[in-house]
Structures are given as structure tokens and as C-alpha cells.
Computed example of a mutant assay.
Amino acid sequence: SPSAYEPVPGWVDSLNGPTGLIVGAGKGVIRSMLIDTRHLSEVIPVDYAINGLCVIPYQFTGLKERPAEVPVYNITCADHRKMQWGEVIDMSKDIGYRYPFEAGLWYPDGCITTNRLHHKINVILFHWLPAYFIDFMLLLLGQKRFMVRIQNRISVGLEVLQFFTMRAWFFKSDAYSSLWNIMNDVDKKNFNMDMDPVETVPMYIESCVVGGRQYLMKESPDSLPRARLQLKLMYILDRVCKTVIVGSLCYWTYGVVARLLGI
């Protein structure tokens, strides 16, 4: 996941993992995902992982003999820092509304569910149908089509992520955490992997959203006022469309029932 400190907070250069979910949902492209909100999230900043990989070999430089057992280091988030997926999602939505992405496909208000049938219906209605419709319109306009290709990539990414978000994972990280205790002050400064950092989880999630916006989407902080205005307009459009669709469905249902009852 995006960095906590180095090279700068929130730095990221890939859509893989949670960052892709943040960007996809923030752009209104991802409308549904399978997540069991009761399970604990397992996310660790990339700079923590890299620093850990640098420190682990250093521990064995002074050993004259190999350990009797092969040491295993799970580079994971500390247990007391883990949060349920539901809390992370709610927090991310709140922060995402404060730091919206520009020119999203739709208002970022997707569905989180554990029901696979519900999810598949949502994917067909809100992922594939809009993608094919947009590509069809681009074809008529003589423009390059891209939405179906993007949805294919999103589908592959979601399948990978959902394998983890629908299951509970428990990793012991005592060995990794113990590395911090054997480091001197200089090493701690150069290879920060403190599991009790100053910043809170909301602060880190905020840096992830801002980092995804700035480093992946190349959206300047100066564009935030415009993005917030676009978000408000998208919200109005979303509610109007939903009202029209639900109203039309109710009207059609009433007509069918009325004919059946001879009213």
C-alpha cells in the first residue's frame, strides 16, 4: 500500500492492491465488491516492507552459525493497528468525499456485499453495461474505445483482492516487530518500521487517498475545488437518475398489477 513516510507520505506508483480500489471507487468505476466487513484489514505501507527487508539480513551478519530453524518474518501490520474492513471503508468514503477525484464516471457510492449473486448482478448492471455503452458511443464518434478493456483489468484485480477481503487472515509478526528493539537510534531513523507511529489510521488513509490522486492520477491539489463541485453535480445526477428509475419501475409495476386486477 502507499508509503507512510518515504519518499513522501502517500507515495504510490501502482494501481495494484488497495490503491486500485481507492482510485476505482473514487472515480465511480468500481460499483460493487465482495468484502466481509467483519474481517480485519491487512495493509502495510510499502516503505515499512522495504525497510523490513533491509533490516532482516542485517540481523544475521554477526552470526557465526546458521540458526537451527529457518526464521520466518511476516511483514504485517501490528495487531493493535488493524481495523475491520467496514471501518476502513467508511473512513475511506468520508476522506474520499473531502478529496474527490476529477472527472469521475459516476458518483462514488458503490455497493459492498458478501452475497455473490447480488455482486454479479451489480457487476453486470453497473460495470459491464455502462462499459459497453460508453465504448459503443465512442465507436459511433470515431474515438478510441477503452472502457471494456479497463473493466477487464478491474475484474482481474477484484478477483485477486476479493480472495483476501472475503477471508479472515491471521499472521504472527512477533519476529518482525522484535527487529525494532535491536536497532539503534540511527538505524531506527534510517529504516523506520515502528509499529506504533505518531500518525493515526485516519491520517494514513488520508495520505493514501491524496497520494493516489496526486501520484497516480496526476491531479494537482489546486484542482480540488473543481473536483468538489463535480462531485456535488454527480451526487445530484445520481439521485435524480435513481428517483426516475425507481419511479418508473413503480409506475410500471402499478400498471401491470392494475391490469391483472382489472382496475
Rank of each mutant, 00 (worst) to 15 (best):
P45Y: 05
I30K: 03
I50N: 08
I95V: 09
P57R: 08
I134Q: 01
T37L: 01
I95G: 01
I205P: 02
W11L: 10
L105P: 00
G142C: 06
V198Q: 12
K27W: 10
L63G: 08
L233K: 02
D47P: 12
L140V: 13
I124F: 04
M183E: 14
I35F: 00
S155V: 01
D222A: 15
N122R: 03
M195G: 13
F146D: 04
K172L: 14
A131T: 04
W11G: 01
Y251N: 10
Q151V: 02
N16G: 11
Y97V: 12
F133I: 11
K82V: 07
I182C: 14
N192Q: 10
K120A: 07
E65W: 07
V46W: 07
R81Q: 15
A258C: 06
W128H: 00
R228A: 08
T200Y: 11
I89N: 00
Y251I: 09
I150C: 07
Y254I: 05
M217F: 08
S14E: 03
D94F: 06
K172D: 15
W252R: 12
V244F: 07
I263K: 14
P2G: 04
V198F: 09
I245D: 03
G17H: 05
D194V: 03
V210N: 09
Q143L: 12
C77Q: 08
G212N: 00
P202N: 02
G211I: 01
L237F: 07
T76L: 13
V257T: 11
W252K: 15
Y5I: 13
W180Y: 15
E6T: 14
G96Q: 06
V186S: 13
Y254H: 06
P221V: 10
M166T: 14
F126T: 06
I112R: 00
S14Q: 03
F163T: 08
P225C: 01
P100F: 02
L158E: 02
P45H: 09
V23P: 00
M183C: 13
W128M: 04
N192W: 13
V240P: 09
L53V: 11
D238T: 01
W11H: 12
S32K: 02
C208Y: 02
